[in-house]
Structures are given as C-alpha cells and as structure tokens.
Nucleic acid binder design. Sequence first.
DNA 1: ACGCTGACTATTA
DNA 2: CTAATAGCCAGCG
Length: 127
Amino acid sequence: MRKYRKLPNNNLPFAVGKNDSFFAAVYDVVRQIPKGRVTSYGAIGAALGAKSSARMVGWAMNNAHAIIPKVPAHRVVNRQGLLTGKMHFAHPKAMQEALERENIIVKEDQVQDFQQIFWDPIVELSL
DNA sequence: ACGCTGACTATTA
DNA sequence: CTAATAGCCAGCG
C-alpha cells in the first residue's frame, strides 16, 4: 500500500507490465468513465488483460484516494451493480450520493438500470 | 517463506 | 434468498 501511496506516473498510458503501472492503468480507465455511467471491477480487470484479477482492481481503488487527478471510484461497482465499496469512502453514503448527483438512481445499494448505464472499457476504449 | 486478507466473480448446493 | 468453494494475486505481519 505505502509502496503505491504516491505513484510516480499516475498519468501513464496503458503500460500493464511489471512495475506498479497496473494501478496507473486502472486509474486511467476509471477516470475515463463518463458521468452518469458505471463499470465493474471485473470489466476493468479484463480491459487490462487481467480479467481474473478483479480483486486487484478493488485493491487499487483502496489507494485511489491518494491519487492525484481525482479517481471517480464511486463509478466502479461490482458486477451486479451493487455499491460494495461504499464503506471505504469518507462516509458510507458518499458513494451513493455521488452517483445520484450524476443522475444515477441507487436503491438499497443497487444501481438501477445498471445494464443501460454500464460502461464497458473493452468496448468503449476499443481494446 | 508462509498464511491471511480482500472495494471480486462464478459456480454449486 | 444465503453459504460454501475455488480461482485470483499484491501486501503485510
């Protein structure tokens, strides 16, 4: 964690390799999520070529608060559209409120019309 | 080096 | 619906 507390190259393009650029790549994708849209950890992992490493994506989000350009982590939910990471925000309600400010309806931690607003980085970024 | 943990996901019961 | 299992892999004590 501390190792990545301050990424030397958080605006690095897609350089998923040996160094910590995996995180940078994750943040890069997340920052490209349009307002009013959401994506999943697995989708991001898949876009980075590590589709089985959704946990790493979630782990990367844990560091997101320390990243320079703000990372809209609230637009990243799990595969079912559930706000599983809301407790990691300043306040448990912060995530839902942030989403609702973007016209995303959230009910009982579940993003409504999830399929419609789902933003697939593989498709949208033509990966 | 080892075992545990986790903002995940898929499958099975 | 819940629970258990099994992959997953970087960090940490």
